[in-house]
């Protein structure tokens, strides 16, 4: 197979160009170049009226270390970590549940998992606001059951942002873990229990290690988007809750400090690259179940 495609290549490059050409050009033009340029810009000076002044400076990176920005970065990292842990804790059992169903039921359950995500994402976040607002159903139940005296102010808190992030990311944690668990051979589990391991031990020693690629995909697919979000914080935080994403976005709106926005983006890139590097130590990136 390899040899034949090798000789094909030498004979005629046209099919390669026609098929792999457009995607290559697109990715280089709109992914590679912009990302290289943003790294370059992050080392430039902020223009007086916004924009970029092309003189070298590390000012943006020093600004990041300023306690005001640094605390936001730490908070974003913390919230993203909490979201990821919640997604793993709640997602793994659900993924396991789905994977143990017969294939037909499982694919229906997966479909059922995705349908809510065809509703407008902003409206889904808005719905959480309606659900938790002062006159909303949650407060109605809480006050009528006498759990709280006055309605709780859920809106515009980190707590609600967490709920929004958790519910938005959960399916993307479930999917890769599901396909990992689904691939797990039942015979291995049976072997483990035949050899005298109790279910807990089997889970810890066989299931968990073998499904680790799925778990790590889930970590990447929840942690990184959660870290970079600005829409969830914008909608549910009402502009009062700021994470890295909001700060980056603001540099290109009202504040107009492009190099700072670029530097913060580079920070996100570095964190992403670090996670991918760890992932690539024990699984190929192409094994990551993204769709």
């Amino acid at each position: 197979m390899n040899r034949s495609s090798g000789t094909k290549k030498k004979k005629n490059r046209l099919p390669v160009l026609a098929q792999a050409g457009p995607v290559s050009v697109w990715m280089i033009l709109f992914v590679t170049l912009p990302l290289l340029f943003i790294i370059y810009v992050s080392f430039m000076t902020r223009g007086t009226f916004g924009g970029i002044e092309y003189t070298f400076s590390t000012e943006s990176y020093r600004t990041i270390l300023d306690p005001m920005y640094f605390s936001v970065i730490l908070k974003s990292l913390k919230v993203a970590a909490v979201t990821t842990i919640l997604c793993l804790l709640f997602g793994y059992p659900l993924a396991y549940f789905i994977a143990r169903k017969p294939p037909e039921t499982a694919s229906k359950l997966i479909m059922l998992l995705m349908i809510p995500f065809w509703t407008n994402g902003m409206m889904r976040l808005n719905a959480w606001m309606l659900f938790f607002q002062v006159n909303g159903p949650v407060n109605y139940v809480l006050t009528h059951l006498g759990i709280v005296e006055k309605p709780v102010m859920f809106l515009y808190t980190d707590w609600l942002v967490n709920i929004g992030l958790f519910t938005n990311m959960l399916p993307f944690a479930v999917l890769p873990m599901y396909s990992s668990i689904e691939k797990l051979q039942k015979s291995l589990l049976e072997a483990s229990s035949d050899l005298g391991a109790d279910p807990v031990r089997t889970f810890l020693k066989v299931t968990l290690p073998l499904t680790f690629p799925g778990i790590f995909s889930a970590i990447i697919l929840t942690f990184i988007p959660a870290l970079g979000t600005y829409t969830v914080t914008d909608m549910l935080g009402g502009g009062k809750v700021l994470y890295i994403g909001n700060i980056i976005k603001n540099q290109f709106g009202t504040i107009r400090n492009w190099p700072l926005g670029a530097a913060l983006s580079v920070l996100l890139l570095v964190i992403t690259a670090l996670l991918i590097f760890i992932y690539s130590r024990f699984a190929g990136i192409e094994d990551m179940e993204v769709v």
């Binding site: 990715m27 912009p34 943003i38 976005k249 670029a262 890139l269 990136i285």
Partner: peptide, 26 residues
């Protein structure tokens, strides 16, 4: 190219959006 294909899937969207914004304006 295979690596580049995974970049938009994995990297936070805001990073790519901002990178494109800067280069388009420039």
């Amino acid at each position: 190219i295979n690596m580049m294909i995974y970049v938009p899937i994995i990297v936070p969207e805001i990073v790519l959006a901002v990178a494109m914004l800067i280069i388009f304006i420039t």
